[in-house]
Design a protein around this nucleic acid. Structure first.
Lengths: 147, 147
DNA sequence: CATGAAACTATATAAGC
DNA sequence: GCTTATATAGTTTCATG
């Protein structure tokens, strides 16, 4: 994991479908050298994969919210995960320090849909309390190009 | 934006470097038909681009936090954005409803580094109060493959 | 040990239908 | 939207510093 690897990664974060030759031009390597590095980065796990960045609004998901969830009693993260994957509106979930057990990011078509998704969250988990904020605008997202 | 487009997008979210032929096999189209749809999806903005999914830990970013920020007085989102892009540790930022003005996601090497980044946030913005939670584990991330 | 050049295969791309 | 033809890129091999 040297400086060249980081440059390769930076370039691929900017354009996940860049050709090896394009990356090579940017970092000063041949295409085959870039390919070998990319293969190694994938192998080592530093590069987890490639993905398309989709505008949620184009799919009709126009309402976004962050929800802090506090559960009744102790909850195993694995169990939490198992239940949350069942709710498609939950697109991101982490366990956190502090009063809350988990922080969720939800995408829904509208606030009515969001409310139904939240009900489902409360049903699936043994929720003691939730605290939600609705996203007004996205200012910054370094992991996604074109924002 | 029909059902086929959604299937194409789903496939490209799973594998952002899939060939058009691979996508075509999965959705029942020829490679060139897939390419035209992808071009159109990019053109329309539904598909914002492609990116590499990098493991932050592999780059030495092992500490993640969410920070609610409340500012002194009114703040224009554009101004907020301008100041936050200057702080590399801030990888995501949204404006939200409720007491807080913004919700930030920060990545740092360790808690010491996180603390310094938070100080910088407080300096750059006219912060009245912050409330931070540190991420313990990531349960789910639908936007990123291999998680 | 990593690289670059070259040969070979697969894919992207554009034009026809 | 599919098929075909051609340009471009991915992939493997191998010789080199």
């Amino acid at each position: 994991m040297d400086e060249l690897d980081e440059k390769v990664l930076r370039h691929l974060v900017r354009d996940g479908r860049a050709t090896f030759a394009q990356v090579g031009d940017a970092v000063g390597l041949s295409a085959s050298a870039v390919k070998r590095r990319v293969d190694r980065l994938v192998e080592s796990g530093a590069l987890r994969g490639f993905t398309a960045v989709v505008d949620p609004a184009a799919l009709g998901w126009r309402t976004e919210a962050y929800v802090e969830v506090r559960c009744d009693g102790p909850v195993a993260p694995a169990e939490l995960r198992r239940r949350l994957v069942e709710i498609p509106e939950v697109v991101e979930a982490v366990t956190v320090t502090g009063r809350a057990d988990a922080l969720l990011r939800l995408l829904a078509a509208d606030v009515q849909h969001l409310e139904r998704a939240l009900e489902r969250v409360r049903d699936e988990l043994d929720v003691a309390a939730t605290e939600s904020v609705i996203v007004l605008s996205r200012l910054l997202d370094r992991a996604r190009p074109g924002t």
